[in-house]
Structures are given as C-alpha cells and as structure tokens.
C-alpha cells in the first residue's frame, strides 16, 4: 500500500469517526427532546398526613390536563390528572385557566420522615414510550406518632 493510499485511508477513518460522533450527538439530542417535554412547569406545594398537592401545566399545550404520578419514598403511590381548582396559578399567569392543580390523598405511612415526588407523564415515540418528568422539587414531610 503506497503512502498516498494510506493517507487517504487515514482521512477516511477520521472522517468516519467524526461523522459517527455527529450522528450519535444528533440522536442523543433528538432522544432527549423526544423523551422529555421542556415545556412542563409545576410545583409540589405541600405534603402532610392528609394530602399532597401542587400544580402542573404543559406550556406547549396549556389547555390540556397533565397526567401526574405520585411516588413516596421512591415507591409508586398513585396517579391522577392535574385538573383541580387552582385560581392562584391562573392569577400568577402560569396557566390560561383555574384548573391545573392536583391533589393526592396521603396513603397510610409509618411515622417518621418521608419524601414525596410528583412526576408528569410524557408520552412519546408514537405512544410506545411513557417517560416520567419530575414536577418541582421533592418534598420532605413528617408523619407524627
């Protein structure tokens, strides 16, 4: 193999690696946007021994109601739809109407510290995938004796 052919082969190998890196990057970015909804907004406001409440809005589709799932201490505890009356969210101009709140009754829990997380359900891949996206921040609360 002469040096000219060798140099051409090296250029091809480097170009191929760069092209593959670009494809992987494009797929990673595309996959992120397919599995994540950057327009979801919401807050987990409160959690105690009776209820866990907050609100969630999909700003790309503000009239739609967001499906939410509750996890307590990393264990699934229920699902619901953010369609409860929350006029404060509307007044703060975070939603086009008053009906974007969610409220879960707190299940039976042992006494002590617990952590609640609420996730919005995001359907993608033509319905073949459903991914969860954390709403606001995890909320720590205590159940008394």
């Amino acid at each position: 193999m002469d040096n000219k052919s060798r140099a051409r082969l090296i250029h091809l190998l480097i170009s191929k690696s760069m092209a593959e890196a670009l494809v992987i990057t494009a797929v990673a970015v595309g996959f992120y946007f397919a599995t994540t909804n950057p327009n979801l907004r919401g807050v987990l406001d409160q959690a105690d021994n009776t209820s866990i409440t907050g609100w969630a809005v999909d700003e790309a589709s503000p009239s739609a109601r967001v499906e939410v799932q509750l996890f307590i201490d990393d264990t699934f505890a229920g699902d619901s739809t953010a369609n409860q009356y929350r006029p404060d969210v509307h007044q703060a101009k975070r939603a086009p109407d008053d009906w974007h709140g969610f409220a879960f009754p707190t299940p039976q829990l042992s006494s002590g510290d617990h952590q609640a997380r609420v996730y919005a359900v995001h359907t993608n891949g033509g319905g073949s995938r459903r991914t969860l996206q954390l709403i606001g921040k995890p909320y720590r609360f205590r159940i008394g004796q």
Partner: peptide, 10 residues
C-alpha cells in the same frame, strides 16, 4: 463505505 474504499485503496 469504509470496507469498499479500503478494498480499492489496498
């Protein structure tokens, strides 16, 4: 593309 080009260059 790599396989075929490599055949040609070699």
């Amino acid at each position: 593309v790599l396989v075929i080009t490599s055949h040609v260059l070699r």
